[in-house]
Amino acid sequence: MKIALDIFTIFSVMAGAFFFLAGTVGLLRFPDPLTRLHALTKADNLGLGLVVLGLLPQTHWPLDTIKLIAIWLFALLAGATVGQLMACTARRGGGQPK
């Protein structure tokens, strides 16, 4: 059972790291702010989500696991809200100093 959990952790954390790679490459290569925001939120949500998903079986049940899930949900909420705010800013003014 432990081996299965370890294998699950390895694959999930590697998938999360891959999405961080994809998000970073997207952030650097995409032409305009909105597509970059798309790449960023991919790395943000999927990368972090898969990493946390991979870490869950490694933590002791009551306290750490719930804390990890709380961090993940909070990061999801924060990422979604911030993504909307930045898209609004990018679409409206682009953020150049007026």
Binding site: T24, P33, R36, A75, G94, G95
Partner: peptide, 13 residues
Amino acid sequence: DVDRMMAAQLFGS
């Protein structure tokens, strides 16, 4: 500035 802020957001996550 929005792009710079995105990098900061990526740094956060």
